[in-house]
Amino acid sequence: MPMHTLKSLLMMGIVSLAACAESTSPQHDDGVGRVEFSYTSANSPVSGSFAAEGAHPADTETGTWAAAVTDQADAMVVARRQSGGVHDQAIIFIPGGTTGTSAIVPDCDDSCAAISVVVHQSIGGTVREYQCVISQGTVSVSTLTSGRIKGTFSGTGSCQSPHDPNQPALSITQGTFDAPFVSPE
Rank of each mutant, 00 (worst) to 15 (best):
S102H: 10
M11D: 12
T24F: 02
S49I: 03
P106K: 07
T156L: 05
A103L: 09
E22M: 09
G175P: 10
G157I: 01
V105G: 00
Y39M: 04
D59R: 05
S146L: 07
A68D: 06
D164R: 12
V77C: 12
V32F: 04
R148F: 11
F93L: 06
T62Y: 08
S146N: 13
G33M: 03
G96F: 07
C159Q: 05
P57E: 09
V86S: 14
I14W: 06
S171A: 15
A21I: 11
S140Q: 15
A58H: 10
V105T: 04
N166A: 15
S8Y: 09
W65R: 01
S25K: 14
L9V: 10
A75W: 02
Y130W: 04
G31T: 08
S44M: 05
D178N: 05
R128H: 10
P180G: 05
I134R: 00
V127T: 15
E53M: 02
L9F: 12
G48I: 06
D164K: 09
I172Y: 06
Q27V: 15
A114K: 05
S161L: 03
V133P: 00
P106R: 04
G13Q: 04
T62H: 15
I123H: 02
D164G: 07
M12P: 00
F50D: 11
I14S: 07
I94E: 12
T99N: 06
H56Y: 01
G175K: 06
P165Y: 07
V35G: 03
V117G: 00
V133S: 12
G147L: 01
